[in-house]
């Protein structure tokens, strides 16, 4: 049944979405502002995108963020897939329920708590074993992996549960050993969820500021951390330009992830 929305609902909807997206839209628009003032429009210009390239602090932090995002997304996909396969394919082993809860718990855990506990862990490890030496890209990657892995596990678990079990049985029946079945049949068939899981993890890692703030060390500030600290000295159109780039990047990776998840053969 096709129903048109009443005028009242339309107004509410416009207000709601406006509240959510209008600020982002202004942010994007003002990134092309010719004036250094963020609130007054003085004509179109791309100068702030140009000056971004001159800012070595921002560039370096962007590079740190990218490195962390690529590493933690990759690690999260590997670990998350292993966790999902053991949850779905290994039958009812002892502690399976607990394992499932523990794997996905970081989703609902307050990031402040996760961040603080990881910081304590890294400090404790350094004092006891002398590793990791200080905090930096490695520790941020570890922190992001714990969070992202939970998302990947859920994505891959759904995909595996949807997959016809007889496909794997057929491969076994045709003489393929279990490892071969996994690489030749299971992996290709769940690959869309691996790619979308990677992209989702990448986006999550790229915009995280809470976890990173806890476990980052000197000289390893991520891009969101730099933005966050810079707004204390006032917003510049340069930040707008950067934010616009990040929004574009994140929207693209989430969009591709969604498209891959819903694509039907």
């Amino acid at each position: 049944m096709h129903r048109t929305l009443s005028l009242f609902l339309k107004i509410w909807m416009t207000l709601g979405y406006g509240f959510l997206y209008f600020p982002i839209l202004t942010l994007v628009v003002f990134s092309f502002n010719a004036s250094p003032q963020v609130t007054v429009w003085h004509g179109f210009s791309t100068q702030w995108y140009g000056s971004l390239l001159q800012d070595t602090v921002l560039i370096r932090s962007a590079f740190v963020s990218l490195q962390v995002a690529v590493l933690s997304a990759t690690l999260a996909v590997v670990l998350g897939t292993l966790a999902a396969v053991s949850l779905v394919r290994f039958g009812k082993f002892r502690g399976r329920g607990l394992f499932g809860i523990l794997t996905t718990a970081p989703l609902v855990m307050p990031e402040v708590i996760t961040g603080l506990s990881l910081l304590l862990l890294f400090v404790g490890l350094e004092q006891t074993f002398g590793w990791p030496k200080g905090r930096g890209i490695l520790t941020i990657t570890c922190a992001h992996t714990t969070l992202c892995m939970a998302y990947v596990t859920i994505l891959v678990r759904e995909r595996l549960a949807d997959m016809d079990l007889s496909l794997e049985e057929a491969a076994l029946d045709l003489g393929a050993r279990p490892l071969k079945v996994f690489t030749a049949i299971t992996l290709p068939l769940i690959s869309p969820s691996l790619v979308s899981g990677w992209l989702l993890a990448f986006a999550l890692s790229l915009d995280d500021v809470v976890l990173a703030s806890f476990v980052a060390g000197p000289g390893s500030s991520t891009l969101p951390m730099v933005i966050f600290s810079s707004i204390r000295f006032g917003i510049t159109p340069q930040i707008n330009a950067l934010a616009t780039l990040i929004i574009t990047g994140v929207a693209m990776s989430v969009g591709i992830a969604g498209w891959l998840m819903h694509r039907r053969r």
């Binding site: 016809d164 007889s166 496909l167 049985e169 057929a170 491969a171 076994l172 029946d173 045709l174 003489g175 393929a176 050993r177 279990p178 049949i185 290709p188 068939l189 053969r265």
Partner: peptide, 20 residues
């Protein structure tokens, strides 16, 4: 003997053709 080591093959109800 495991399934991959038997001189037996099966045709599944769903046919289980590898879609890729």
């Amino acid at each position: 003997r495991p399934a991959y080591d038997r001189p037996v093959n099966m045709m599944f109800q769903s046919y289980a053709l590898f879609p890729h």
